[in-house]
């Protein structure tokens, strides 16, 4: 038996692969939009985590709490300073608008 015949007989009893089903395009579109939503939610979670860390550092920097003393003061002030520059103005504006700090943090996290 030559190689051509061997190959033909090797695959003749094998199952045929499926063709695209009627709902295939809809399934792909559903997965595409689910993927886009998941990506949005991931970046939203990252943003929330950033705001939370920035808020904690800001509070630590301005209130000089005891655990903050375990960090390198330069690092704390650099990161805290960045937090102040970003979160600070937002908090000040929020306070002017009548929100409390805690209220604002929860609103940010729970958005």
């Amino acid at each position: 038996m030559n190689i051509e015949q061997k190959l033909k007989s090797a695959f003749e009893q094998q199952p045929t692969s499926p063709a695209p089903s009627t709902g295939f395009q809809d399934q792909v579109m559903a997965k595409v939009s689910a993927h886009a939503t998941a990506q949005q939610s991931r970046s939203s979670r990252l943003l929330k985590a950033y705001w939370l860390v920035a808020a904690i550092l800001f509070v630590a920097a301005i209130s000089q709490v005891s655990w903050a003393a375990t960090f390198d003061p330069t690092l704390l002030w650099v990161v805290g300073g960045a937090a102040v520059l970003t979160v600070g103005p937002v908090i000040l504006l929020a306070r002017l608008a009548g929100f409390s700090l805690l209220d604002l943090v929860w609103r940010t996290i729970d958005r």
Partner: peptide, 10 residues
């Protein structure tokens, strides 16, 4: 096959 094709199109 269908699952892999879906992944490919995504």
């Amino acid at each position: 096959v269908e699952e892999v094709c879906q992944d490919a199109f995504i």
